[in-house]
Write a protein that binds this DNA or RNA. Structure first.
Lengths: 150, 150
DNA sequence: AATATATAGTTCAATGATTGAACAGTTAAA
DNA sequence: TTTAACTGTTCAATCATTGAACTATATATT
């Protein structure tokens, strides 16, 4: 790989991550139709798929401080979308689960987001998009390693 | 592509875009060392590469309202990092350019960001990362089309 | 057992980003 | 000429995020 080529790749990568994220989040927001904020949606998504997750876990995954998690969680809790239940063995820990209303709202919004993303990835050959997600997964792992180092 | 397979791909795509962005921006922020906010960096980057760009253009590319752009721009301007010059033909338009201090600071921070990204993408075979960026580019185009529709 | 240290989560004030609406100034269209 | 459209700014309101202090609980050290 020549020096120039790497620089071009790096530059293109930086611009694309920025542009794709901005546009993507904007389209997601549109689909959420003010029923949930983007962060609230991703939080519900994580709680849905990870039964009995905790604030600390969310803070790690979302890479924000615990106090930011508490803010999101409390808003969802105020709307009766999630429950907080204390661990009986370690009473410092609070487990998060969806209420029925939370599950219902999540499922409804999830469908709209899925349709959006499906409309994008079905424009590719199966092979191309699978390869893309594969590499994306590796990048995610590399970033996780870098994160842990510092 | 079976129904299940698409659903898995969609789900993985959603999770990865979220996770990679959070971690990526966090690492970028670390490199900026409080000299610039992430938005300020990307704004300088865009002004650097696009000579004589305007607020409207930035608002479109960054997909935020013009008032948000004014806020970022004004902060950079307060620090003497950019100049605002009126178009003499259309006196509504204001062109944005880097000052010498702005160029210097941008170049310094750009190098750190480039090194970060380079350390990531050089962990791949040239072929794989080029293919990735290629597909990413296509996704960006699809999103742009979707954006323009609404 | 007593003490010190670490952890999970919350509160709160401060900061920063984003928006919408109203506005000034300018240009283009009817 | 009048009207409409456009560029950019201001400002108040909202929301997300942070750091520090705090409560309550658990673990480690002496």
């Amino acid at each position: 790989m020549s020096q120039l080529s790497i620089k071009e790749l790096v530059d293109r990568y930086i611009d694309l991550t920025f542009a794709v994220h901005k546009k993507g989040e904007s389209l997601v927001k549109e689909q959420l139709q003010s029923e949930l904020s983007n962060d609230q949606f991703y939080t519900l998504k994580y709680i849905y798929k990870t039964d009995n997750c905790t604030s600390t876990e969310l803070a790690k995954v979302f890479d924000v401080k615990k106090s930011a998690i508490t803010a999101v969680i409390t808003k969802l809790w105020d709307q009766d979308l999630i429950e907080r239940t204390r661990d009986q063995n370690d009473r410092r820990v609070v487990y998060l689960t969806l209420t029925e209303a939370g599950l219902e709202l999540y499922k409804k919004t999830e469908e709209r987001i899925y349709n959006l993303v499906e409309s994008i990835i079905t424009q590719f050959e199966e092979q191309e998009i699978k390869q893309f997600i594969d590499t994306y997964e590796k990048i995610n792992n590399i970033l996780t390693t870098l994160q842990e180092k510092q």
